[in-house]
């Protein structure tokens, strides 16, 4: 089985030549910057008590969601885990309504009934953040079955973390997706830790996961999830394979969260050195540096993005703060759909 890195090396073109349009590069950067600023604002508002419950931030992993989701069409479904803000924003979910959901307001995506771990936008085929680890795998196979059965041409992207690979549903779903040749792209965000448990303490089989997909006869590859362009290119190849072959593909993205598992995490289980080492790969630093050094855009272009995004975030927090609480009658709404 070839890794994507190997596949890439076999091609004559280099990454920088694959995509060179200024707009596209700036869009990728803008989305990553939006996610980073959104997450920072979430952290701040968690401290203020505006956001409650559990809050899991996506800081550090932005390139994975942005690079991969940029390859999808409107008819494609996304399901993901509870660290879902990044995927939601990359899919284009409304920033205001996303923030309002975290504030638990009536104007939130789920009317304040889901919160941070359960973001949904069915209109954008964003079928949830899911907070039972590994719970989203079977949902992905079902959505893919519907795509296959109805011949919509759509595929399903199922994001999951390394922690979920020890759940039964992970193995069951890889098996079923392969047996039924379901159009699913499994995207592993391997950030090396399931909450506070590093891979080497909970997993037999080493630090690479994509090789295991072979057991289920699923083609697989590994990519640097900190590199948004590599992520985009890898996903594009993977998505094409899923669309053409109909069956699943498995893409492992090596990534890292720079912050704790949740806001309640003191990170006693890992060393500051490791975090600092990974921060050198920060996509929010490396990618704009590359954009400037490659002469794709100017510093003023980036500054303009910063201003726009910061305004978006400020507006979103304001929108969330000033939105109404759900009415008490909402307690009984949305349990059953009327028959």
């Amino acid at each position: 089985m070839a890794t994507l890195k190997q596949e890439k090396n076999n091609k004559t073109s280099k990454l920088t030549q694959v995509v060179d349009e200024k707009k596209e590069m700036l869009d990728l950067y803008k989305q990553m910057f939006l996610i980073r600023q959104f997450e920072l604002a979430c952290g701040e508002n968690y401290t203020k008590g505006n956001i409650r419950g559990f809050l899991h931030l996506y800081i550090g992993q932005e390139a994975t969601a942005v690079g991969s989701i940029s390859c999808l069409n409107d008819q494609d479904y996304i399901v993901t885990h509870y660290r879902d803000h990044g995927h939601a924003l990359a899919r284009g979910l409304d920033v205001n309504r996303s923030m309002a959901e975290l504030f638990g307001k009536a104007s939130g995506l789920s009317k304040g009934k889901g919160g941070s771990m359960h973001l949904f936008d069915a209109g954008k085929k964003f079928m949830g953040g899911h907070a039972i680890v590994g719970g989203q795998f079977p949902l992905a196979t079902g959505l893919a079955l519907a795509c296959q059965y109805k011949k919509t041409g759509g595929i399903v992207v199922c994001f999951f973390g390394d922690g979920s690979t020890n759940q039964g549903t992970y193995h069951e779903t890889l098996n079923l997706a392969s047996v039924w040749k379901l159009p699913i792209l499994f995207i592993l965000e391997n950030n090396k830790y399931g909450m506070g448990s590093s891979i080497d303490r909970v997993r037999a089989g080493g630090e690479d996961f994509y090789t295991g997909a072979n057991t289920y006869d699923i083609p697989a590859a590994q990519v640097d999830g900190m590199d948004v362009l590599a992520e985009k290119e890898a996903t594009k190849i993977a998505v094409d394979k899923v669309r053409q072959n109909g069956g699943p593909f498995y893409l492992e993205c090596k990534t890292f969260r720079f912050v704790g598992h949740s806001l309640a995490d003191g990170q006693k289980y890992r060393k500051t050195d490791e975090i600092k080492e990974w921060e050198k790969k920060d996509p929010l630093t490396k990618f704009p540096e590359w954009i400037l050094s490659a002469g794709i855009a100017k510093k003023t272009d980036l500054e303009k993005i910063h201003q726009e995004v910061n305004k978006n975030i400020e507006d979103a927090v304001n929108f969330a703060e000033t939105s109404l609480e759900p009415k008490s009658s909402e307690l009984y709404e949305d349990i059953y759909k009327i028959d």
Binding site: F137, L139, G142, L143, L145, A146, L176
Partner: peptide
């Protein structure tokens, strides 16, 4: 076989598959 689907012995997954299919418009 497209409509009468024998599943592996994976209850969590084929129940969840039904849920996903239902949420995408089928009636499993």
């Amino acid at each position: 076989p497209e409509r009468i689907k024998d599943t592996p012995i994976s209850e969590a997954t084929f129940i969840g598959t039904g849920i996903g299919a239902a949420s995408a418009g089928l009636r499993p």
